[in-house]
Design a protein around this nucleic acid. Structure first.
Lengths: 336, 336
DNA sequence: ACTTGGCACTCGGGAGACCGGAGTGCCAGG
DNA sequence: CCTGGCACTCCGGTCTCCCGAGTGCCAAGT
């Protein structure tokens, strides 16, 4: 149905269109790629490709441009992830290695991705619910107010204030802290949440009231507040020309956490996934593509990162960049 | 030199242009405002205003639009900060009161400002060097690695890892922690930095090596790393039409921390300051205006926040919003 | 059964011509 | 000093025209 040459034609169309941003015609194709057939032949192939929905012409008698379906085929069968040269890898590595802090790692990652791909970069903070507790700290800040600090193995620090009913003595705090850390350190957040219920047994009865207040805040932090943190960068890379209905729509979408979550959303964690145009079930981002991958310190992905750009984007390079960066970020996180 | 009517004309021009985004002519002026003179008279006034550089005509035989200088006069002498109704204040208050966390406060503030003004909002995190130490925590995470957590009274939490030369015993950590908190809690960060040098005397000699490692990291955190954190929101409010050289330039500027710092930059802390057009000495933002104010829990400003938009912006409202939000944010921070 | 050159056809979009309308500056009279 | 009148300017929308790139189809060639 689609012989080799037709596929080659599609590939050529995608490549040319991506680099020139102009509809590509049969003549230009045979010139720029060394297909040794005549333009007329190409035209026939194009007619077939168009009939099957891989390409369209913006108006009669213009060149062709790929459809979402065309890009999909290109990504799935006609291109390979562009691997990064060792020099490039080294640059990535040193750029990320300078980070001194989780915030810093994430910020740098976003910048790096945006720069490498010249697209908008999106990076999610390591998901709370896949991390484990490294330490829990209680600090008295006022008579009946404690500051609770939760530190995860991925370096995230969550802090909340706890209002207690009565005054809490220094000793009680010390004890509570010891109990909390003894039981919860090293646990997955989900596990920790499950364990909290049993903890009050270990607390002297007269302190239970205050302890319960602490527990419930911890619980809240662990499970309820699953608002994931996401950072966006490189918005300046959005070229107005690429979006028919204006940047406005896209910029708006990029400010919604929920939307971003859905964008990176599902998909196999380990691999680089590509979502093209209307495949993004997000109002307003139907004209964009997302290349995403999971990253993590171990085998399992902690969170996602990716880039967003016009469907007309350089997929092989973007995929290469996303893959490479995801790897190194994972590595950096594992070290710290 | 500029009599009352001429000033009234300027004010009217600014107001009309802000709301319509079209050059305003003499006829339209007398219609929309009840200046009881004829268009011809207004034309004469306009000629004077133009000669003095307060307005220009984009091309011969078009209406006039204000220059930066015109906006400046308008802001300084022809307008008043629009105060917020109590209903609006209440809305602001409850919106911010829901925050449970410094990050959350800042995020909400940005969103709120952006929404109130329909402009880009910029909020700086409470400056480290004007806060004081609330608590310092040391957590062992590996044999020769400690996690240092610094909590400030404004709720900022900074964390760094410390590599020590030798193993540190549990007791040594406890002691070190006690010393640190005894000496540094409640101090301004600058003071604290100064005190650190004297601290090693209080440490048993055999622990000094490790302690020094910790001290130097604290010092670094306190003084060297003065990278201020800034958050931007509402970029979608930028209307492409308002920027001759395209959004690109503006978006790019908004991604540079340094640029943002300079934008909010100097100016009297307590008051709302306005910087109009070319008054912003920032390449690429010469066509925008910034309305900023300091906010803080006490009398002294901890940091700045503001909005950025086209010079053609509704200054009274923007100033009102910035002032009101700054107040409430300060209040919220003081409470937590 | 493909491939190819030839040819007529279709549009998009840029260049020019045209015109209306909004707005101005100036002047002379109140 | 204000006002009505008047001639002038020029922006911006519309219309037309035309070129050129690109196509689809067909008939002939391999």
């Amino acid at each position: 149905m689609l012989d080799d040459r037709k596929l080659a034609v599609l590939r050529a169309i995608v490549e040319d269109f991506v680099s020139t941003n102009e509809p590509v015609g049969s003549k230009a194709l045979v010139d720029r790629h060394n297909l040794d057939v005549s333009p007329a032949t190409i035209r026939n192939d194009m007619a077939v490709l168009e009939e099957q929905g891989f390409i369209v012409q913006p108006h009669t008698s213009a060149g062709r441009i790929p459809t979402d379906k065309g890009y999909r085929l290109f990504v799935d069968r006609l291109s390979a992830v562009r691997p990064f040269s060792t020099a490039e890898r080294r640059a990535i590595e040193t750029f990320l290695a300078g980070a001194y802090d989780l915030d810093d790692v994430v910020t740098r990652t976003v910048r790096l991705l945006a720069q490498l791909t010249r697209q908008v970069a999106v990076v999610q903070y390591p998901s709370l619910h896949r991390s484990s507790v490294r330490h829990i700290e209680l600090v008295p800040v006022a008579d009946r107010r404690l500051l609770l600090v939760l530190i995860t193995d991925t370096g995230r620090v969550e802090q909340r204030t706890v209002e207690t009913a009565g005054t809490v003595t220094e000793d009680a705090i010390t004890h509570l802290r010891a109990v909390l850390n003894a039981c919860l350190d090293g646990r997955r957040l989900a596990e920790a949440a499950a364990l909290i219920g049993d903890l009050s047994e270990r607390i002297p009865p007269q302190e239970r009231g205050n302890a319960t207040a602490v527990f419930s805040v911890i619980l809240e932090t662990l499970v309820e507040r699953h608002e994931e943190k996401i950072v966006v960068g490189g918005a300046a890379n959005l070229a107005p020309a690429d979006f028919s209905r204006g940047l406005h729509e896209v910029l708006e979408a990029l400010e919604e956490q929920v939307v971003l979550m859905r964008l990176l959303g599902s998909g196999d964690d380990a691999l680089v996934t590509v979502r093209i145009g209307a495949e993004n079930q997000v109002e307003g981002l139907r004209g964009t593509s997302v290349v995403a991958a999971g990253y993590g310190s171990g085998e399992e992905a902690l969170a996602k990162l990716g880039v967003l750009g016009p469907t007309r984007m350089d997929y092989p390079t973007a995929m290469g960049a996303v893959r490479a960066v995801a790897r190194y970020v994972g590595q950096i996180l594992a070290e710290s």
